[in-house]
């Protein structure tokens, strides 16, 4: 498998070509707006290609730790967090294939949602801890997105 140049480098070269060669040759306003959108999508894919598997693994681990903290604090009324954790255990990816990992990540998302619903009313450090997981997930979504300004609306 040829891994160098990396996927990110290849995608960045496409972006560069679109910006420096293709964009100047496009006069139509709608097509220019589409080029801006294409650049935005390619930039996001470049970041995802570099980090997606690692970030998913890291986040799942952090969510599990947070959920266990919710249970340990006695905040899991109705055992909803515990149930979601059990479901997560049953949906482990057999490999690092992204499509398999997505299923496990989705189950972890439900664990996080239920942890949030338990920790928000509990407040204090528990709430801060769970909100911190959500904030770090958001920070990565923003890093993947990069700069964003809605193109093509006048």
């Amino acid at each position: 498998m040829i891994v160098r140049p990396s996927s990110r480098q290849l995608l960045e070269s496409v972006r560069e070509e679109l910006r420096t060669t293709i964009a100047d040759a496009v006069a139509d306003a709608e097509a220019q707006a589409r080029l801006a959108m294409i650049d935005s999508v390619l930039a996001s894919v470049a970041v995802r290609s570099e980090h997606e598997v690692a970030w998913i693994r890291e986040e799942i681990a952090e969510i599990e730790e947070g959920a266990r903290a919710v249970i340990a604090a006695g905040a899991d009324g109705g055992d909803r967090v515990a149930e979601a954790l059990a479901d997560l255990d049953g949906r482990r990816a057999a490999s690092d294939l992204v499509s398999e990992l997505h299923g496990e990540y989705d189950a972890a998302g439900e664990v996080l949602s239920r942890s949030i619903e338990a920790a928000l009313p509990a407040g204090g450090e528990l709430r801060q801890r769970i909100e911190g997981i959500l904030a770090r997930r958001l920070a990565r979504e923003v890093e993947i997105r990069g700069e964003f300004s809605l193109a093509g609306r006048e």
Binding site: D106, E110, L134, R137, L138
Partner: peptide
């Protein structure tokens, strides 16, 4: 939605 969105639930 099929996928989970913790931000929506938050």
């Amino acid at each position: 939605l099929e996928d989970s969105y913790p931000m929506l639930r938050y």
